[in-house]
Lab assay of single mutants.
Amino acid sequence: TLFEALYDYEARTEDDLSFHKGEKFQILNSSEGDWWEVRSLTTGETGYIPSPYLA
């Protein structure tokens, strides 16, 4: 399933992933509550992002 970022986000820890509004992601793991592990389709990087920032 693909999701798109609604807002920009700046990583706060080394496990987080910074991203920009409009960036698209593949969800790798959504079992961690509000923090999902994703792969950016723009950069190929993986990390955790806050799920409320996605649509």
Rank of each mutant, 00 (worst) to 15 (best):
residue 4 E to D: 04
residue 49 I to C: 05
residue 37 E to A: 06
residue 32 E to S: 13
residue 41 L to I: 09
residue 28 L to I: 10
residue 2 L to H: 06
residue 31 S to Y: 08
residue 2 L to P: 05
residue 19 F to D: 06
residue 51 S to K: 09
residue 49 I to H: 00
residue 6 L to A: 07
residue 6 L to Y: 06
residue 34 D to C: 14
residue 38 V to C: 04
residue 14 E to C: 12
residue 2 L to T: 09
residue 51 S to I: 05
residue 44 G to H: 04
residue 4 E to I: 13
residue 23 E to Y: 02
residue 36 W to E: 00
residue 2 L to W: 12
residue 47 G to Q: 03
residue 32 E to L: 13
residue 52 P to A: 15
residue 28 L to R: 14
residue 12 R to H: 10
residue 1 T to P: 11
residue 26 Q to W: 12
residue 30 S to Q: 11
residue 47 G to I: 05
residue 20 H to D: 03
residue 22 G to M: 15
residue 45 E to N: 09
residue 23 E to L: 01
residue 7 Y to P: 01
residue 16 D to N: 09
residue 5 A to C: 07
residue 38 V to N: 00
residue 16 D to K: 12
residue 10 E to Y: 08
residue 36 W to S: 00
residue 21 K to Q: 06
residue 22 G to C: 05
residue 39 R to D: 00
residue 24 K to V: 12
residue 17 L to H: 02
residue 15 D to M: 13
residue 47 G to E: 02
residue 28 L to K: 14
residue 22 G to Q: 00
residue 53 Y to V: 12
residue 39 R to W: 03
residue 46 T to P: 00
residue 6 L to Q: 08
residue 40 S to N: 14
residue 24 K to I: 14
residue 35 W to C: 10
residue 3 F to L: 06
residue 47 G to H: 05
residue 38 V to Q: 00
residue 30 S to L: 07
residue 21 K to A: 09
residue 44 G to N: 06
residue 15 D to I: 12
residue 33 G to D: 08
residue 37 E to S: 04
residue 42 T to M: 08
residue 2 L to M: 07
residue 30 S to M: 12
residue 8 D to H: 05
residue 54 L to D: 07
residue 15 D to V: 12
residue 37 E to N: 05
residue 13 T to G: 14
residue 24 K to G: 03
residue 31 S to A: 10
residue 24 K to Y: 11
residue 5 A to I: 04
residue 9 Y to W: 07
residue 44 G to C: 07
residue 23 E to W: 13
residue 36 W to P: 02
residue 44 G to W: 03
residue 52 P to D: 15
residue 53 Y to H: 12
residue 42 T to C: 10
residue 24 K to M: 13
residue 19 F to Y: 07
residue 11 A to N: 04
residue 4 E to R: 02
residue 27 I to C: 04
residue 49 I to F: 01
residue 13 T to Y: 15
residue 43 T to I: 02
residue 10 E to L: 09
residue 20 H to N: 08
residue 16 D to P: 02
residue 38 V to Y: 00
residue 46 T to A: 04
residue 43 T to F: 13
residue 10 E to F: 13
residue 34 D to V: 08
residue 7 Y to S: 06
residue 32 E to Y: 12
residue 2 L to V: 13
residue 26 Q to S: 05
residue 28 L to V: 06
residue 51 S to F: 11
residue 9 Y to N: 02
residue 44 G to S: 15
residue 32 E to M: 13
residue 26 Q to K: 04
residue 23 E to R: 00
residue 50 P to V: 03
residue 7 Y to C: 14
residue 44 G to L: 14
residue 46 T to K: 14
residue 38 V to T: 00
residue 19 F to M: 09
residue 16 D to I: 11
residue 1 T to D: 11
residue 50 P to Y: 15
residue 38 V to L: 00
residue 51 S to M: 05
residue 34 D to Y: 15
residue 36 W to H: 00
residue 6 L to P: 10
residue 45 E to C: 11
residue 4 E to G: 15
residue 12 R to V: 12
residue 46 T to G: 01
residue 19 F to R: 01
residue 21 K to D: 03
residue 43 T to G: 01
residue 22 G to E: 02
residue 24 K to T: 07
residue 34 D to M: 11
residue 41 L to F: 05
residue 36 W to K: 00
residue 45 E to W: 08
residue 25 F to Y: 14
residue 48 Y to T: 05
residue 43 T to M: 00
residue 37 E to C: 14
residue 52 P to M: 15
residue 17 L to A: 02
residue 37 E to R: 10
residue 3 F to E: 02
residue 52 P to N: 15
residue 27 I to M: 03
residue 12 R to Y: 07
residue 1 T to G: 08
residue 5 A to D: 15
residue 49 I to S: 00
residue 11 A to R: 06
residue 43 T to S: 08
residue 47 G to T: 14
residue 13 T to V: 09
residue 54 L to G: 08
residue 9 Y to S: 02
residue 54 L to R: 05
residue 13 T to D: 10
residue 51 S to H: 06
residue 53 Y to K: 12
residue 13 T to I: 05
residue 32 E to D: 13
residue 48 Y to E: 09
residue 26 Q to E: 14
residue 14 E to M: 10
residue 48 Y to G: 00
residue 13 T to W: 13
residue 40 S to F: 03
residue 38 V to M: 02
residue 36 W to F: 04
residue 2 L to A: 05
residue 45 E to Q: 13
residue 21 K to Y: 06
residue 51 S to A: 14
residue 54 L to N: 09
residue 45 E to F: 08
residue 38 V to G: 03
residue 46 T to E: 06
residue 53 Y to N: 12
residue 29 N to F: 04
residue 6 L to E: 14
residue 18 S to I: 08
residue 46 T to R: 08
residue 33 G to A: 12
residue 24 K to R: 11
residue 32 E to A: 11
residue 1 T to W: 13
residue 52 P to G: 15
residue 1 T to L: 13
residue 39 R to G: 00
residue 34 D to I: 11
residue 44 G to E: 02
residue 52 P to I: 15
residue 35 W to S: 05
residue 16 D to H: 14
residue 51 S to N: 14
residue 35 W to A: 03
residue 31 S to E: 09
residue 15 D to H: 14
residue 50 P to C: 14
residue 36 W to I: 07
residue 42 T to Q: 09
residue 6 L to M: 09
residue 37 E to W: 14
residue 20 H to S: 10
residue 4 E to H: 06
residue 39 R to I: 08
residue 24 K to S: 04
residue 21 K to E: 03
residue 49 I to D: 00
residue 9 Y to C: 07
residue 26 Q to I: 14
residue 53 Y to G: 10
residue 43 T to N: 04
residue 23 E to C: 05
residue 46 T to D: 09
residue 43 T to C: 02
residue 23 E to S: 03
residue 7 Y to L: 06
residue 5 A to G: 01
residue 47 G to C: 09
residue 20 H to L: 10
residue 3 F to W: 14
residue 22 G to V: 01
residue 7 Y to Q: 12
residue 35 W to M: 09
residue 31 S to G: 10
residue 14 E to N: 11
residue 53 Y to P: 08
residue 18 S to N: 10
residue 8 D to P: 03
residue 30 S to C: 13
residue 40 S to W: 04
residue 47 G to M: 06
residue 26 Q to G: 02
residue 44 G to A: 02
residue 11 A to D: 02
residue 13 T to P: 03
residue 20 H to R: 13
residue 17 L to M: 13
residue 32 E to G: 12
residue 30 S to K: 10
residue 19 F to E: 08
residue 55 A to S: 14
residue 19 F to N: 00
residue 25 F to N: 01
residue 24 K to H: 07
residue 8 D to K: 01
residue 32 E to K: 11
residue 39 R to S: 02
residue 30 S to F: 12
residue 42 T to A: 13
residue 33 G to M: 08
residue 17 L to G: 15
residue 28 L to H: 00
residue 15 D to G: 14
residue 2 L to D: 04
residue 21 K to C: 07
residue 10 E to A: 07
residue 10 E to D: 13
residue 10 E to I: 11
residue 25 F to V: 01
residue 17 L to D: 01
residue 50 P to D: 04
residue 9 Y to E: 01
residue 40 S to D: 04
residue 6 L to V: 06
residue 26 Q to T: 07
residue 9 Y to T: 01
residue 34 D to H: 09
residue 48 Y to P: 00
residue 52 P to S: 15
residue 10 E to K: 09
residue 38 V to P: 00
residue 14 E to V: 11
residue 16 D to M: 13
residue 49 I to M: 15
residue 18 S to D: 02
residue 34 D to L: 12
residue 55 A to C: 13
residue 45 E to M: 12
residue 48 Y to Q: 05
residue 48 Y to N: 09
residue 16 D to W: 11
residue 45 E to S: 07
residue 32 E to I: 10
residue 22 G to W: 04
residue 39 R to Q: 06
residue 18 S to Q: 02
residue 7 Y to V: 07
residue 4 E to S: 02
residue 20 H to G: 06
residue 24 K to P: 03
residue 30 S to G: 09
residue 11 A to Y: 03
residue 9 Y to I: 03
residue 30 S to D: 12
residue 53 Y to A: 14
residue 46 T to Q: 12
residue 34 D to W: 12
residue 5 A to Y: 02
residue 16 D to V: 13
residue 19 F to T: 03
residue 31 S to D: 09
residue 47 G to D: 00
residue 22 G to T: 02
residue 21 K to T: 11
residue 11 A to I: 03
residue 54 L to H: 08
residue 41 L to D: 11
residue 26 Q to N: 04
residue 45 E to H: 09
residue 22 G to N: 03
residue 16 D to A: 15
residue 48 Y to W: 14
residue 32 E to C: 14
residue 55 A to N: 11
residue 29 N to L: 04
residue 38 V to R: 00
residue 9 Y to H: 05
residue 2 L to R: 04
residue 40 S to E: 01
residue 42 T to G: 11
residue 19 F to H: 03
residue 15 D to A: 12
residue 35 W to L: 07
residue 1 T to K: 11
residue 36 W to D: 00
residue 18 S to H: 07
residue 43 T to R: 00
residue 29 N to R: 06
residue 18 S to E: 04
residue 15 D to K: 14
residue 53 Y to T: 12
residue 42 T to S: 11
residue 53 Y to I: 12
residue 23 E to T: 04
residue 29 N to I: 11
residue 33 G to W: 09
residue 37 E to H: 13
residue 12 R to Q: 14
